[in-house]
Amino acid sequence: MISAVTAPGTHSPDNRPAVERWLLSAHSEPEQARGEWGENGVVLLPLGARFSAVRIPRELVMSAARLEESKDYLVDVMLDEFLGETLNEGPVIFDQHRQRYYVLVPGSTPIRWHKAAASWRTLGVDCLGLDTYLGVPRLNANRGYPEHWSSYWAVPMRSPGALCNVIDVARLIAAGKRNLAEVAE
């Protein structure tokens, strides 16, 4: 659902400072992390405590959305909107160079979902947690200026701690897997 105040793929101006503080609090030195964000547009944040991430290849998301492979800007917009709807506006980062989505989930996900995560690896999906760092783009990195960012927020974080529900993520992966199997038949 598109807010009258906030365009798709952007963070609410009212929540931006709180979301920024929450994300940066995952870093052992939040002010240093803030500086890295300012210099590089991205900061490496440790996973497994505040949040973890499920890495999903773009092709699997394309399959779940039943879209044909294309590098067209409008297809990417449709994918971002599809992820927002499918994951109930939970936060997702897109790495343009590696063509992978990083769905932000609760920190305990890799431990609690290790059996499912092991079966997902055959699809190129990985559940990232402790001892892993994620490049998190600045909050103003969005689809509006994709040429400026190596990664951007496909679905912005609505508020501090508002993460994706793992059940929704599992359904997304299952739909992508099912649709890939149908195409292969």
Rank of each mutant, 00 (worst) to 15 (best):
L24Q: 01
T132I: 05
A26K: 06
H148M: 12
K71E: 10
L139Y: 02
E36G: 00
S151F: 01
R34E: 05
Y73N: 10
D95E: 07
V183L: 12
E81H: 14
L180F: 11
M78D: 14
L45M: 02
I2G: 03
G90T: 01
S70I: 06
V77F: 08
L67E: 09
A53S: 15
N88C: 05
N40H: 14
E81F: 12
C127P: 05
L79A: 11
D72L: 06
S63Y: 09
T132S: 06
E39G: 03
S63N: 09
V5W: 01
V19C: 11
R50T: 05
N179G: 02
A4Y: 04
V166G: 03
E147M: 10
R121A: 03
D168E: 05
A174V: 02
R66G: 04
D72E: 12
L60Y: 15
R16S: 02
G48C: 05
L60P: 15
E59D: 14
P106K: 04
I2R: 09
E69I: 10
P91V: 10
K115S: 04
P160Q: 10
F51T: 06
R98C: 05
Y152G: 02
E31W: 06
S151G: 06
A141M: 11
V5G: 02
P57I: 04
A118L: 08
Y101R: 03
L172G: 08
D76S: 09
I93F: 13
L67T: 07
H27E: 02
R178L: 14
Y145L: 01
G161C: 11
S12R: 12
N142S: 14
Y152L: 14
D126Q: 14
P13C: 04
Y133C: 12
L134G: 01
R138F: 00
L83M: 15
G176E: 12
S25E: 07
S52K: 06
Q32G: 00
A174P: 00
T6E: 03
Y102H: 15
W120F: 13
T109D: 00
S28I: 10
A53W: 15
D131F: 06
S28K: 14
